[in-house]
Simulated assay, not measured.
Amino acid sequence: MAERILIVEDDKRISRMLELELVFEGYETGTAFTGAEALIQFREAEWDLVLLDWMLPELTGLEVLEQIRSGRSEMPVILLTAKHEVKDKVAALDLGANDYVTKPFEIEELLARIRAALRSSVKPAAEGLFTFGELTLNEKTRETKRGDRQIELTPREFDLLHYFMRNPGQVLTREQVLDAVWGFDYYGETNVIDVYIRYLRKKIDAGETVTYIQTVRGVGYVLKER
């Protein structure tokens, strides 16, 4: 069954171009031209991914994104934006965008990011069991494996990896990780995250050529294959 992508873009020329390219690639598509229309489409149909323009009439892309995430949806959302500043990108990621593509963009790059986001939208294979690539994490038994290799993690390392595996493909800021894993009442330095990321990488990537937790310079980290 073809994966379904909702295109939310008020420029009808760009929307039509995206629709033609995605249909050619084998996806099913739907379109919305305003923020309000996007929410109606999102609620009335099943989608595998949303391409969401930042600047929309009625509701901005960020407002649409915030409402999507408030419903606990983990569906991948790629933001299309003309904004280039890091603070704008961080704002989008903080609200739950999985990725962002700045305009003007090359369609091949966008298609590659769509494929990556769809691959990364991992759901638990069974209750409490998460998989990503060769990684397996069982939140009930608190066991972690890479392939057949058992990985011994400290409680904090396990919680950190658990958070990444519940949000695959999503760029997570240090502040998001700190709040989710250490809690809102933590008052230490955010560089504790960098230290624990090093611990995790050393354990899960030992003897491997593929690494999973990638650094996004100036923003944070993301769980994806490289």
Rank of each mutant, 00 (worst) to 15 (best):
D205Y: 06
K202M: 08
A206L: 10
I114F: 07
L80P: 06
A126H: 13
G96E: 00
K224C: 01
S121G: 07
Y196Q: 10
M55E: 14
T211E: 13
Y163I: 06
E175K: 08
V101C: 11
G188H: 08
F33A: 09
E74V: 12
L118V: 07
D88L: 01
L20Y: 01
E85F: 00
R43E: 14
K89Q: 05
K224V: 03
D148H: 02
Y196N: 14
K12Y: 10
T141S: 15
R13A: 04
E157M: 07
R156T: 15
H162L: 05
N98E: 10
G183P: 11
G26T: 04
R69P: 02
D88G: 12
E189T: 11
R69E: 01
L51I: 10
S121D: 05
I78D: 03
Y186D: 12
L51K: 07
T209C: 05
E66P: 00
R201C: 01
Q150I: 11
Y187H: 10
E3A: 07
G218H: 04
L80R: 09
E74Y: 12
N191Y: 11
N138Y: 08
R13T: 07
R142V: 04
V192E: 09
T60K: 15
A92F: 02
A126E: 12
S70W: 00
Q41T: 06
R69N: 02
G96W: 01
V23L: 07
R43L: 04
V64M: 04
Y221E: 02
G169D: 10
I40W: 13
V101K: 11
L137I: 07
Q41R: 12
G61H: 07
Q170F: 07
W54Y: 06
Q150E: 05
L22T: 08
S121M: 01
R174E: 05
T29P: 07
I68F: 05
L135S: 04
A97H: 02
R13L: 04
V210K: 14
N167L: 03
L79E: 02
T215W: 04
K224E: 00
Y199P: 00
D148E: 09
K83H: 14
L6P: 00
R16E: 09
F132D: 08
P155L: 11
V90A: 04
A36S: 08
E9H: 14
L62I: 09
N167S: 13
E189K: 12
T136N: 01
L110N: 06
L49Y: 10
N167V: 06
K103E: 06
M75E: 00
T215R: 10
V8N: 09
T102K: 10
F42H: 15
H162A: 12
L51A: 06
V50P: 04
F130S: 14
R72V: 15
R72K: 14
R174D: 09
T141V: 14
V219T: 05
I68D: 04
E74L: 12
A91M: 12
L79D: 00
D48L: 06
